[in-house]
């Protein structure tokens, strides 16, 4: 079948599920600096999509477009369309509903950033502000279980989230994101501040979460991308004539294609470790 996911003709990925997020001609400026140039990408539902590429290639920038976190950066301007269930999130009519977008498209950050509150409150906060009406204790337990943290945390729910180890803190952040029942979880290098064992646990967790959530993960770790993701997008940087470095999407395909048989020379060089 002809892919809906790859718009440029030289790509031939064939993901097997519908797209939940579609970026159409997305360009991001920070002030006068163009960080990401005209990007088209479709994110398949209930799969893990990895964004890889060298620093400054715009992968985190694109990630932040999906939940409009770029709105918080002064001078950031996003052009093009980000469609979520077919609706453009950057449309003016969503300006008053950004909170709802962010609830449905959650985010986990590079450095674990639990709130300076109890483990319980870390989870309950998001649910409470979004008007959750169910049983809070039950939600906290379910979220912690899904984030594979329940066994370690169940006896210290009243302790500070900051008392956990780095890897546990990151799983707490994942639990916190899950608690507001999002459809998509954006992960911005979630393991880069963690040790290999904690990283492994998060990767195992990702495979469990895939059943319920769509996950986009930015990573510098190519083994990680090849281990966890179904689809991989390779971003690259190009210097313009004026010397500015612009990020762009170089190739997007099923992960095994990107790592074993990429079409682009740059992708081949990057995934084989010859540059980047």
């Amino acid at each position: 079948m002809k892919s809906d996911f790859i718009q440029e003709s030289n790509f031939s990925a064939m993901p097997t599920s519908e797209a939940i997020l579609e970026a159409e001609k997305v360009t991001v400026h920070y002030g006068s600096f163009m960080a990401l140039r005209e990007t088209y990408i479709n994110i398949p539902k209930n799969q893990i999509t990895a964004f890889i590429g060298p620093s400054g290639c715009g992968k985190s920038t694109l990630l932040r477009c999906f939940n409009r976190m770029n709105d918080l950066i002064p001078g950031a301007k996003v052009g093009g369309k980000i469609r979520f269930h077919g609706e453009n999130l950057h449309d003016r009519k969503f300006d008053k509903r950004i909170e709802e977008i962010r609830r449905r498209i959650g985010m986990v950050f590079q450095k674990p950033n639990p709130f300076s509150k109890t483990i319980y409150e870390n989870i309950a906060f998001g649910a409470r502000i979004n008007g959750y009406r169910g049983d809070m204790d039950e939600l906290v337990e379910r979220s912690l279980r899904q984030a594979a943290l329940w066994d370690e945390a169940k006896d210290k729910l009243k302790q500070s989230g900051l008392s956990l180890s780095g890897g546990q803190q990151q799983r707490l952040c994942i639990a916190r994101a899950i608690a507001v029942q999002p459809e998509v979880i954006l992960m911005d290098e979630p393991c880069s501040a963690l040790d290999p064992i904690s990283t492994l646990r998060i990767e195992e967790l990702l495979h469990e979460l895939e059943e319920r959530y769509t996950i986009i993960i930015v990573t510098h770790n190519m083994q990680q991308a090849s281990r966890v993701s179904d689809m991989t997008a390779f971003f690259n940087v190009k210097a313009t004539e004026s010397g500015q470095r612009q990020g762009y999407l170089a190739e997007y395909d099923r992960t095994e294609v990107i790592f074993q048989n990429p079409k682009e020379q740059v992708t081949q060089e990057y995934v084989s470790g010859r540059f980047g």
Binding site: N67, M69, L72, E99, E100, I101, R102, R103, G106, M107, F109, K111, N113, P114, F115, S116, K117, F125, G126, I129, N130, C173, R176, A177, V180
Partner: peptide
């Protein structure tokens, strides 16, 4: 740290909710 504000916003909190709680 700004990361706490980001964490709050990413959960769908308004600015006031982030300020008041965190």
């Amino acid at each position: 740290p700004g990361s706490l504000r980001q964490a709050g916003f990413a959960l769908g909190a308004t600015r006031w909710q982030v300020i008041r709680e965190h």
